[in-house]
Design a protein around this nucleic acid. Structure first.
Lengths: 154, 154
DNA sequence: ACTCAATATCTGCCAGAGCAATGAAAGCCC
DNA sequence: GGGCTTTCATTGCTCTGGCAGATATTGAGT
């Protein structure tokens, strides 16, 4: 049973379009907050950079660049340049693995660890704002539906 | 009542992260299909370009560049360059408005009109694939929840 | 007519992402 | 050890998107 058919399908009202819009608004809101927050503005972390940082911060073990790429299905080339930016901002360090010299382990710097909790709070409060009026059941339902879409992607 | 709080919030499992992933997978799937489709590959339309084209194709009246930007909350600078690419591919035409010479009306070319139905079918079938196993109620629920998030953004 | 504000487009700059090709390193098989 | 494949990271190319600044045009007020 298909959800959309040729007669009723309107691209600009589809789930895909909505997902894109929500993502854009979330990123924009996060970037606005990040530049507004005086304690962080001098570092200049962006929303995309926060995603990578949060992955590193909440990791149990050391992660290599390719680990991160796999987890996030993120392009390796994009990752290299992302790390360049994070490293130049002093938030992350590259550490070549001696056992396997192909690998680049990523470590958070002191500065990175110091700034992360604030970033986490910020992103949390933004999501709570976007979920205003949602019951917990609504939120879980949304997470579940999105999760099912992701499974269908693979 | 907040959905997330400091104790249970894990950025990489949040609604925002899921939305980002779903969007990425949808775009990747569409781009894969677009390059695979032999009838379209010589034109080389991308997913982002399709979004603009579909807006134009299903428009009732003439639309200017800024109309499109407002509808989609899309950056004006990005739009200029997007139109450059669409125009160079012969899918869209710029037509300066004589009454208000600031405006650039956008018109689809014959080629653009010819290729659009196929693009629409493609994007529809991809979404149906991502929504496999969804009841219509599920799909409407998802649209509704995403719509509520968008309202909270504004 | 003149000034001023608002609007639309365009341009330059930067961050971001995917893809393809390269090079370095490791693992494997003979 | 010598090939062969695989895995990683990097780089170049392109498309994408936000922001700020520049320019052109319009319209409103005086």
């Amino acid at each position: 049973m298909s959800i959309y058919d040729s007669d009723n399908y309107e691209p600009s009202r589809s789930v895909a379009y909505l997902v894109g819009q929500v993502r854009t608004e979330l990123l924009a809101a996060l970037d606005r907050e990040l530049t507004a927050c005086k304690h962080v503005v001098d570092i200049g972390v962006t929303a995309a950079q926060f995603v990578v940082i949060s992955r590193l911060a909440s990791a149990e073990r050391k992660k290599s660049a390719s680990d991160l790429c796999r987890e996030m299905s993120y392009d390796a080339g994009a990752m290299t340049r992302m790390i360049d930016r994070l490293e130049s901002k002093g938030l992350v360090r590259r550490a070549r693995c001696p056992q396997d010299r192909r690998l680049v382990y990523l470590e958070m710097t002191e500065q990175g660890r110091a700034v992360y909790p604030r970033l986490r709070e910020l992103s949390m409060s933004i999501q709570n704002r976007f979920l205003r009026g949602f019951s917990r059941a609504d939120a879980r339902q949304l997470e579940s539906l999105l999760g099912r879409m992701l499974e269908n992607a693979a």
